[in-house]
């Protein structure tokens, strides 16, 4: 038996509640949450979908660390498992947090290919070598789970801060050989809520479940932004 201590919130008050779950080898924290919901307390609210670590729904704080519940084995956590909602997000109910703002920030950095010759009706094949693909590929792996944002000290003190995930998306497109929208994105990135707010705590890279390394992306974006500003100042 493993004791699950869950941080609950019903819209008015928050409290801890404990459940005993019969854990066996192979059981994930997400399965334990379903076990609790289906057998003890069906009002327990949490998000989950793919349970294979790709949809990004089930990021939560498990024993103080943000992780995906679906890929965390219960038996690796000891006899007590503490489950809480992510930090830096407003809690809506139990483990469910408000993600609207997070996705708004993503949208704000224009995370899509920008091309002058965009032709919906008759697209042509844009070439890209494997080397060019590798320049940005790792940054496409972000599942937008919010783990990085939840540990970011800059996001903790400034709600408007774009955050690691959004800026990783911005860099991913800036580094894509097919893209022509760098200038627009550098302007967004150099805004008061952009790259210069990053304090290099680098915790985002430590907690990313997909090893996307957002801290690196933010710094590379900072470099590109700085060079672009310098160039425009010098009139090159």
């Amino acid at each position: 038996m493993v004791e699950f201590k869950i941080r609950r919130y019903d819209g008015e008050k928050s409290y801890w509640q404990s459940f005993e779950v019969p854990a066996k080898r192979g059981m994930t924290v997400l399965e334990a949450l379903y076990y609790i919901k289906e057998n003890y307390d069906s009002s327990l609210a949490f998000r989950a979908s793919c349970r294979m670590g790709i949809c990004g729904s089930c990021a939560m704080k498990i024993n103080d660390k943000p992780r995906l519940a679906c890929e965390t084995q219960v038996l690796t956590l000891g006899n007590t498992v503490k489950v809480e909602p992510l930090d830096n997000f407003k809690v809506i109910k139990d483990l469910i947090t408000e993600f609207d703002g997070f996705f708004e920030k993503l949208k704000a950095v224009k995370p899509h290919l920008i091309r002058k010759d965009d032709n919906y009706a008759e697209p042509k094949e844009l070439l890209q070598t494997p080397e060019e693909l590798n320049e940005y590929y790792v940054f496409t792996l972000c599942i937008k789970c919010g783990a990085c944002y939840s540990v970011c000290p800059a996001a903790a003190t400034l709600d408007e801060y774009l955050g690691p995930a959004a800026m990783t998306a911005a860099y991913r497109f800036c580094a894509d050989s097919r893209d022509e929208g760098q200038k627009e994105r550098y302007e967004i990135a150099s805004s008061p809520n952009g790259v210069w707010r990053c304090h290099l705590a680098m915790e985002c890279s430590e907690v990313c479940p997909k090893n996307v390394e957002p801290a690196k992306a933010v710094q590379l974006l900072r470099r590109k932004t700085a060079f672009s500003m310098l160039k425009s100042l010098l009139g090159w």
Binding site: K61, V151, P153, A155, A156, T157, A201, E203
Partner: peptide, 18 residues
């Protein structure tokens, strides 16, 4: 607020350094 700077439970050495 600034209390966000002082959460290091479960965090790596990078957060401690910060």
């Amino acid at each position: 607020g600034v209390s966000g700077w002082f959460r290091f439970k479960g965090r790596s050495l990078f957060s401690w350094a910060f």
